[in-house]
């Protein structure tokens, strides 16, 4: 088990190093001169040269990259050009709002998606299965920012049940969480239905059914355990997709999280902030996948004891 854990951690770290290279390349080709961005367009050449030396922009690119990685490892992601604050500090201050939103949406999407998938699998190839299939496809087809806008119009403007955006108490979380959750719920229900239907065809479930076990008991006691495992992995992988949705949801609801921060950064060509938010998002995904891998290994001894990566 320990060897497996170490392997996964090394793999996660290697992936993060790869993402740092990609963010660095993006920053390198962005058509904005950091020195001009910091000193203003009217700065004289001597000042610009001084800033370039200070930022290490006169060094060869591989030295710049090494310094960037070294600083990032020490928690230093540079300073925002526009806000004139530490990028790491900005990210930390915005993280709680995004974490609350993402966790609430994740919980809600599983709470909706799992029963939907089970119901569909129990009524396989019958009317209810088809209905749920179309429903889940409908859910994944709704543009998240449009759903948010509609919920805001109906729930906030007409019914006055919820605030019109902002982050202010549990009530303000309801609409953004629903907005972010529905698409994933449709996705999870599809995956679970497929996995469960496959599991129900397996010999061990047929044996259980042959012994006289009811469909429901066979599904809960036998098939679910195997069908849930891939779902856990997918939920981890889907975390990156969830963060994409976060950007749009936060924009609609004026939610003061990382998504807004990232959008602001891109809009202002604030390079350190763009790099910082992308890298941080990738780190979150890597951590989510690591947690899922470890959970998976704990649940499934075949992985723990097997030799595959």
């Amino acid at each position: 088990m320990l060897a497996y854990v170490i392997r996964r951690i090394v793999f996660g770290a290697a992936v993060l190093l790869g993402t740092s290279l990609i963010t660095f390349v993006i920053a390198f080709v962005i058509p904005a001169d950091p020195a001009v961005a910091m000193a203003g367009a009217k700065a004289d050449p001597a000042t610009l040269a001084a800033i370039r030396t200070e930022l290490g922009l006169d060094q060869p690119i591989y030295i710049q990259y090494a310094r960037y990685v070294d600083r990032a490892l020490h928690g230093d992601l540079g300073r925002s050009y526009i806000r004139r604050e530490e990028v790491a500090g900005l990210i930390i201050s915005r993280f709680p709002a995004t974490a609350i939103l993402a966790l609430a949406a994740m919980a809600l999407s599983l709470a909706l998606g799992i029963p939907m998938g089970m119901l569909a699998a129990a009524h396989r190839e019958r009317a209810l299965d088809n209905l749920l299939l179309v429903l889940s496809l409908g859910l994944v087809s709704i543009p998240v920012f449009w759903l948010g806008t509609i919920l805001l119009i109906v729930g906030g403007l007409y019914l006055h049940w919820f605030p019109l955006g902002g982050f202010d108490g549990p009530k303000s979380l309801v609409l953004p969480a629903i907005t972010l959750a529905l698409g994933s719920a449709g996705y999870y229900s599809r995956i679970l239905q497929t996995n469960l239907a496959d599991a129900m065809d397996q010999e061990y479930v047929r044996t259980a059914r042959g012994k006289g076990l009811s469909l429901r008991a066979a599904m809960f006691k036998h098939a679910m355990a195997n069908a849930m495992l891939p779902l856990v992995t997918l939920a981890g992988l889907d975390f990156a997709g969830l963060l994409s949705g976060v950007v749009l949801t936060e924009t609609v609801f004026d939610w003061p999280g990382l998504g807004r921060l990232a959008f602001e950064a891109v809009f202002n060509l604030d390079i350190p902030l763009v790099m910082g938010t992308v890298l941080f998002a990738a780190a979150l995904v890597v951590i989510a996948n690591l947690v899922v891998d470890l959970l998976y290994a704990w649940l499934d001894p075949r992985i723990r004891l097997g030799q595959q990566l």
């Binding site: 990609i22 963010t23 993006i26 990156a240 997709g241 963060l243 950007v247 990232a262 891109v266 995904v285």
Partner: peptide, 22 residues
């Protein structure tokens, strides 16, 4: 495939935003 793994960890929309800015 390791390159693919790296790309998979980057949220598509966030990466697309950064690219469009460039």
């Amino acid at each position: 495939m390791r390159f693919t793994d790296v790309m998979l960890t980057l949220p598509a929309l966030l990466l697309a935003m950064a690219f469009v800015a460039v």
